Simulated assay, not measured.
Amino acid sequence: MASIVIAQTTVDDEAKAYDIGRGAVEARLAAGVHVDARMTVFYWWKDTVQHEREYRLSFKTTAEKVAELEAWIHERHPYEVPQWIVLPVTASTQEYLAWAAKETRTE
């Protein structure tokens, strides 16, 4: 059985978040994507603390698809240095794992 991961990125535009999320599912690179409500983020960029409003996207995908998803995201991401964090899923039901594997299969 495939293992799944949660991969995350952020964007500052709601429409772009929806486009990336839907596109990743349509391309079968993610079984599902959560677009979280707008949040506030503080971070260092070019020697200055920045303050922005962003949307976090959480992609549910398989470990086997995560590199392909990362490349796909980076081709479409509006940021110079996009956040890309991959979190292992350490526990899940077999049914959920099977669903994620099925929905990211392209053959």
Rank of each mutant, 00 (worst) to 15 (best):
1 M>E: 13
1 M>R: 09
1 M>C: 07
1 M>V: 11
2 A>H: 14
2 A>Y: 11
3 S>L: 12
5 V>A: 06
7 A>P: 07
8 Q>K: 06
10 T>H: 04
11 V>L: 10
12 D>H: 10
14 E>C: 08
14 E>I: 00
16 K>P: 00
18 Y>M: 13
18 Y>H: 14
18 Y>G: 02
21 G>P: 07
21 G>T: 03
21 G>S: 09
22 R>W: 04
22 R>I: 03
22 R>V: 00
22 R>H: 04
23 G>C: 05
24 A>N: 05
27 A>V: 04
28 R>Q: 12
29 L>I: 06
29 L>D: 09
30 A>I: 02
32 G>L: 08
34 H>E: 13
37 A>N: 12
39 M>D: 13
39 M>W: 12
40 T>N: 15
41 V>M: 14
41 V>C: 13
41 V>D: 13
42 F>N: 10
45 W>I: 07
46 K>M: 13
46 K>F: 05
47 D>K: 13
47 D>L: 13
48 T>P: 02
48 T>R: 14
49 V>I: 15
49 V>D: 12
50 Q>A: 09
50 Q>W: 04
50 Q>F: 03
51 H>L: 08
51 H>I: 00
52 E>G: 03
52 E>W: 01
53 R>L: 11
55 Y>A: 05
55 Y>P: 02
55 Y>K: 00
55 Y>C: 06
56 R>M: 11
57 L>K: 05
58 S>P: 05
58 S>W: 04
58 S>H: 05
59 F>A: 02
60 K>I: 07
60 K>N: 07
62 T>D: 13
62 T>Q: 09
63 A>E: 15
63 A>C: 11
64 E>M: 02
65 K>A: 08
65 K>W: 03
65 K>L: 09
66 V>N: 04
66 V>A: 05
67 A>E: 15
69 L>M: 05
71 A>P: 01
71 A>H: 08
72 W>A: 01
72 W>K: 08
75 E>P: 00
75 E>D: 15
75 E>Y: 05
75 E>K: 06
76 R>T: 02
76 R>E: 12
77 H>Q: 10
79 Y>D: 12
81 V>L: 14
84 W>V: 01
84 W>A: 07
86 V>A: 06
87 L>R: 05
88 P>V: 01
89 V>P: 01
89 V>K: 03
92 S>L: 12
92 S>W: 12
94 Q>R: 00
95 E>K: 00
95 E>M: 08
96 Y>A: 03
98 A>I: 01
98 A>R: 14
99 W>S: 00
99 W>H: 03
100 A>S: 11
101 A>V: 13
101 A>G: 08
102 K>F: 10
102 K>L: 13
103 E>M: 11
107 E>P: 04
107 E>Y: 05
